[in-house]
Amino acid sequence: MSSQDTPKTPGATAPGRPRRDTSRRREALNGLGLLSPALIVMLSMLALPVGALVVMSFWTQSGFTLDTSFTLDNYRRLFSTSERATEWMGMTFHLGYPVPAILMIKSLAMSLMATVAVVLLAYPMAYFLAFRVKRNKAAWIIILTIPFWTSYLLRVFSWKVVLGYNGAINSGLMSLGLIDAPLEFLLYNPAAVVITLSHAWVAFVVLPIYVSLEKIDRSMLEAASDLGDSKFKRFRRIVLPLSMPGTITAALMVFIPTVGDYVTPQLVGGTGGTMIGSLVQQLFTKQNNAPMGAAVSLVMMLIIAALVLTFLTLIGYWKMRARSAR
């Protein structure tokens, strides 16, 4: 990576003007030098493994033998059509291998629901923290930071305990005499997954939304009121648009990883609540078909990326961010 941005002024090297700006190049080299350990980590542990995953997705596995000759078979199989129709949730799939497609759609839908729930839950909290809390703000922030850092596995595990057949809700309701038999619909279904995901990720978005609200210049709000806006109008016309980029970024930080989540469906999803992450895990372990697993995870990432980019373009995210940066 060489620095090409140093302007080459004509005559800069001519006699009488002995200086050439080497300082910027030196600075760029020093900067990249300091970054190099991190870049090496990223290259060797992110770029190369993903590259390996790509290569692997063009291989095939049959039984215990891995065939390393290049083929598009895995992808072909993922997108192959079939006469046989598979029904799922009122949708008909004419696919030869419908499981990944169904799980993908299901994962996207569940993840989207969880993301919307998370943002709706977190926004008022962030608003409260930014505009209402005057004293002990640091304490509030710490209280909201702790769940962010507690083990994800434990947060999911706790819902298994709460919603389980012998769990806290069922036994609580039974001991209160409100129900006679445990409610079975609490655990092991998509709703349990969405609830658990919402809870597990809500702590991640309060702080980013809070930061984007906190950055809003208070005098701007006073100006809006001064110009006749009611509190609600002012919220809709000033606060909401200015905090939108931060909120969207936070929402994506939830949406993208949850589509591929593995722990939650595994612990609270049961058979009905499986998601695409579970399939990837199974392909790599039980089904012993790592090449197909690689293909599924790559297609999943591409679909997520395409959806996110389309979404951001549709809402004019970059323009929005440039505007509120001012």
Partner: peptide, 18 residues
Amino acid sequence: IEEPTTGQLLIDGQDMRG
């Protein structure tokens, strides 16, 4: 703290380049 892109700077007769 900054280096000039072109040109010369002498302080007490000493060239300050670099």
